[in-house]
Design a protein around this nucleic acid. Structure first.
Lengths: 168, 168
DNA sequence: GCTTGACTTAAACCTGTGTTCAAGTCCTAA
DNA sequence: TTAGGACTTGAACACAGGTTTAAGTCAAGC
């Protein structure tokens, strides 16, 4: 049996977050001792692992609560629980693909600035006499990328490792 | 020149979100006409594309504003802008890897419920006489996965396509 | 000239996801 | 037996990221 503090440390979730999840109906399986304190069973960690996974996948708490409700309802909901996870799998793979698309764009912009840094001015990308980026710029990158054997050679600036810390 | 409504449609961002971004300092480059209305230049869409990419990558608005500030400051900040994007690239690849780890876990749970559905009861995964999951269960899945030639055969239940709509 | 639709602002509002606070309970160890 | 630390609750607070509302401006078409 674990206390809320034990679980917080083990799962790397704050106690206030765990209490919040409990209030939102995510932890109906957690029992209490005589003093009213939560006592987590080893098997409860399996539930919390699922909750944590769904949270990290971007599923809202209310939505997770509905899955936990299915879990509490017994074998009659097994197929529903499977379908829920199957759906979340699809949502997550879509999300990963979307992130990958953002990554591709970020890399184009890295190339854009690498090129500009090397030229000493962003003007290398501008239409003559303007401050507007040449619409051909991206196509130019895509051609360069097709011919490139090494993406990093194309987009990475040699790292002189005077790494300033960068806030996020 | 485009109105805020034009840009909203083209970029698939609500006008209220665009005004919010402007208030937060993300659109300092947008000019106004005599009537005080925002007039977006074609080149402004390049900025909005970057903003949208960073937003979709999970970068907070305040943080994006600092990048836009660099953009407005001229060629002296080119290397800083490159470093910013380089950092965001690293953050995003980490994020994608984390998502992939959640996906792996979701797939284990799909297998768990597929197996349970086929058995008609979740008890196939429990330690005898208990409602606690056998700690060996996950290792059992991982072995099955190593031997599996097709992940989907392992974790997907034959789809009888009575697809209930699933809320997200 | 008047209506309509798209724009403007400031301010209020809303949701999700927690965190913090105040007041109290419980257990342990000195 | 008293001090400390970990727990309990409800309520208030915080913060991001918008959305909505109210009141007004502007240009176009009828």
């Amino acid at each position: 049996m674990y206390s809320i503090g034990d679980v917080a440390k083990m799962m790397n979730i704050s106690t206030s977050a765990l209490r919040f999840y409990d209030r939102q109906g995510l932890l109906p399986f957690v029992e209490r001792n005589q003093a009213g304190r939560r006592t987590f069973k080893p098997n409860d960690l399996n539930f919390i692992e699922v909750i944590d996974c769904l949270k990290k996948s971007g599923v809202p708490v209310k939505n997770i609560a509905s899955f936990i409700q299915l879990c509490m309802a017994g074998d009659g909901t097994l197929k529903e629980r499977y379908d829920y996870l199957d759906h979340q799998e699809a949502v997550l793979t879509d999300k990963i693909q979307a992130m990958q698309a953002q990554l591709d764009f970020l890399r184009y912009k890295k190339w854009y600035y690498k090129t500009a840094v090397e030229a000493g001015t962003e003007a290398v990308h501008f239409l003559p006499q303007t401050h507007a980026v040449d619409p051909e710029t991206k196509a130019q990158y895509q051609r360069a990328r097709q011919n490139a054997t090494d993406l990093h050679q194309l987009i990475d600036l040699p790292n002189q490792s005077t790494s300033q810390d960068q806030p996020d």
